[in-house]
């Protein structure tokens, strides 16, 4: 049984966590994404990271509102969140959601919220480099893993290598899709598309992307975003490959390798 500390509890005990884990709405509520959250927290505990979560004090960053065009709602969310974050004196934030990552990192500073914001794959990479996290080699040996670049991690913030380095550390064979890194194809969920039906077209974007992933004949499709995960999982189901090719977050890959 792992006890996840909230920043409120820690503050009451006079402790200041080194890093805030921003769980995000998907990580908090979505059944699939909750598994990613748990896998990540298990690694944090295993590596002895001093962290806390906001719990009920966390609220949507406002990303889907802003991308929908509702600047007012976005800024209401942002200012309220910044008051909470600044109230606790938060300096560093890690999140497993590239949308939260991007918004906190790039759009909050101008509104009074300046923090060091990193994606969870970057933290995991740091922990590995510092020797705080070790990966027993072998469990993915000979497995082909393809990584889908989340737009808000890759193109939006130029983070391409951290998740790839982790996959390589797992001893797995990293295979690239025909569109990868700066040319990565969107999963179809960004810009608030996650919350609406797609416009009329010849195909759904997640199907197109899943086809690109399947072309690499992977054993596992790796993702670094809860929304991409949902879209690709749906895509794999549509291709009747569920059970055959899992869609897993990089944190889940590591947690499984460590048998956490």
């Amino acid at each position: 049984m792992i006890k996840v500390p909230t920043v409120a509890e820690l503050t009451a005990e006079g402790k200041i966590p080194e890093i805030l884990f921003w769980v995000g709405c998907a990580g908090s509520f979505d059944e699939r994404a909750k598994k990613i959250t748990k896998a990540f927290v298990k690694i944090l505990h295993n590596a002895g990271v001093s962290y806390g979560v906001l719990g009920a004090e966390e609220s949507c960053t406002g990303d889907p509102a802003k991308r929908s065009g509702n600047e007012f709602l976005f800024q209401m969310q942002a200012i309220a969140n910044i008051e909470v974050l600044n109230g606790y004196g938060v300096k560093k934030i890690v999140t497993a959601c590239p949308h939260c990552f991007n918004t906190l990192k790039n759009e909050y500073p101008e509104l009074g919220g300046s923090y060091e914001v990193i994606h969870h794959t970057q933290l995991l990479k740091d922990l590995l480099d510092q020797g705080k996290l070790t990966i027993e080699k072998g469990s993915y040996k000979g497995k082909k893993i393809t990584f889908h670049d989340p737009c808000y991690l890759g193109r939006a913030n130029n983070v391409y290598e951290a998740p790839r380095d982790l996959i390589k550390k797992l001893d797995a064979e990293l295979v690239e899709m025909k569109n990868c890194k700066a040319k990565g194809l969107c999963c179809g969920a960004g810009g608030a598309q996650m919350f609406k039906e797609p416009e009329n077209g010849s195909k759904d974007i997640n199907i197109e992307r899943t086809e690109q992933a399947l072309e690499t004949k992977p054993d596992i499709i790796a993702a670094g975003c809860p929304f991409c995960n949902t879209m690709l999982t749906d895509g794999v189901k549509n291709k009747e490959k569920e059970g055959e090719i899992p869609v897993l977050d990089v944190a889940e890959l590591i947690a499984t390798a460590k048998d956490l």
Partner: peptide
């Protein structure tokens, strides 16, 4: 405070079966 109709107080419920 979330794009889905969940109660904000339930944001931490994921810790229950860790």
């Amino acid at each position: 405070g979330a794009p889905w109709p969940f109660n904000q107080q339930d944001r931490i419920n994921w810790v229950q079966d860790l």
